[in-house]
Computed example of a mutant assay.
Amino acid sequence: MISTSPKDAMRAFLASKVAEKLVENPDAVTLYAAERAPDPKPYVKKTTNSEQVFRREIEKMREELETPAPTDPVVSKSNAHLMLDDYPGLSS
């Protein structure tokens, strides 16, 4: 014995109702043109941590090259009390 499933019965019922509606009013269904599919975005590679660190180091090197070298020697605060005259054996 072949029985129809409830889904098939519902599909047949809805199809008949749509057909009846179209017979009564042919303008009941409006067809629209399909929308154009959006263009895919171009692939952009995500940078890895090592690439980001490499770029930062390159930027640091560029900044160091752009900054002019100091003309007078910079004396650190910890060695501010030491002078070359304190060591008579050394010459500049």
Results as ranks from 00 to 15, higher is better:
residue 9 A to M: 11
residue 9 A to Y: 06
residue 9 A to T: 12
residue 10 M to K: 11
residue 10 M to Y: 07
residue 11 R to I: 15
residue 12 A to P: 00
residue 12 A to R: 04
residue 12 A to Q: 10
residue 13 F to R: 11
residue 13 F to W: 05
residue 14 L to F: 14
residue 14 L to N: 15
residue 14 L to Y: 12
residue 14 L to I: 15
residue 14 L to C: 13
residue 15 A to G: 08
residue 15 A to H: 02
residue 15 A to Q: 08
residue 15 A to Y: 02
residue 15 A to I: 04
residue 16 S to E: 09
residue 16 S to Q: 10
residue 16 S to K: 12
residue 16 S to D: 09
residue 16 S to F: 09
residue 16 S to V: 07
residue 17 K to V: 14
residue 17 K to C: 10
residue 17 K to M: 10
residue 18 V to L: 13
residue 18 V to Y: 01
residue 18 V to A: 11
residue 18 V to F: 02
residue 18 V to Q: 08
residue 19 A to D: 06
residue 19 A to C: 01
residue 20 E to S: 11
residue 20 E to Y: 05
residue 22 L to M: 11
residue 22 L to Q: 15
residue 22 L to G: 01
residue 22 L to E: 14
residue 23 V to M: 04
residue 23 V to Y: 04
residue 23 V to I: 14
residue 23 V to N: 06
residue 24 E to R: 09
residue 24 E to F: 07
residue 24 E to C: 05
residue 25 N to Y: 02
residue 25 N to E: 13
residue 25 N to R: 05
residue 25 N to I: 03
residue 26 P to Q: 00
residue 26 P to T: 00
residue 27 D to C: 03
residue 27 D to I: 00
residue 27 D to H: 09
residue 28 A to T: 06
residue 28 A to Y: 03
residue 28 A to M: 01
residue 29 V to E: 01
residue 29 V to Y: 01
residue 30 T to K: 15
residue 30 T to D: 05
residue 31 L to V: 15
residue 31 L to S: 06
residue 31 L to W: 10
residue 32 Y to F: 09
residue 32 Y to L: 08
residue 33 A to E: 15
residue 33 A to I: 05
residue 33 A to G: 07
residue 34 A to I: 04
residue 35 E to Y: 05
residue 35 E to N: 11
residue 35 E to S: 13
residue 36 R to L: 07
residue 36 R to Q: 13
residue 36 R to C: 04
residue 37 A to V: 13
residue 37 A to R: 09
residue 37 A to C: 02
residue 37 A to E: 12
residue 37 A to Y: 03
residue 38 P to A: 03
residue 38 P to M: 01
residue 38 P to L: 01
residue 39 D to R: 12
residue 40 P to W: 00
residue 41 K to L: 13
residue 41 K to F: 07
residue 41 K to R: 08
residue 41 K to M: 06
residue 42 P to R: 03
residue 43 Y to H: 13
residue 44 V to M: 04
residue 45 K to D: 04
residue 45 K to Y: 05
residue 45 K to V: 02
residue 46 K to F: 00
residue 46 K to D: 08
residue 47 T to H: 07
residue 47 T to K: 14
residue 47 T to F: 04
residue 47 T to M: 08
residue 49 N to P: 05
residue 49 N to V: 14
residue 50 S to E: 13
residue 50 S to T: 12
residue 50 S to A: 09
residue 51 E to N: 01
residue 52 Q to V: 07
residue 52 Q to W: 03
residue 53 V to T: 14
residue 54 F to L: 06
residue 54 F to I: 03
residue 54 F to V: 04
residue 54 F to R: 10
residue 54 F to M: 07
residue 55 R to V: 11
residue 55 R to W: 09
residue 57 E to S: 08
residue 57 E to Q: 15
residue 57 E to M: 11
residue 57 E to P: 00
residue 58 I to L: 12
residue 58 I to G: 06
residue 59 E to Q: 14
residue 59 E to N: 08
residue 59 E to I: 07
residue 59 E to C: 02
residue 59 E to R: 15
residue 60 K to R: 15
residue 60 K to F: 08
residue 61 M to N: 10
residue 61 M to P: 01
residue 62 R to I: 15
residue 62 R to M: 09
residue 62 R to S: 04
residue 63 E to G: 03
residue 63 E to R: 15
residue 64 E to P: 02
residue 64 E to T: 11
residue 64 E to Y: 15
residue 65 L to V: 03
residue 65 L to F: 13
residue 66 E to L: 10
residue 67 T to R: 14
residue 67 T to K: 10
residue 67 T to W: 01
residue 69 A to C: 04
residue 69 A to I: 09
residue 69 A to G: 02
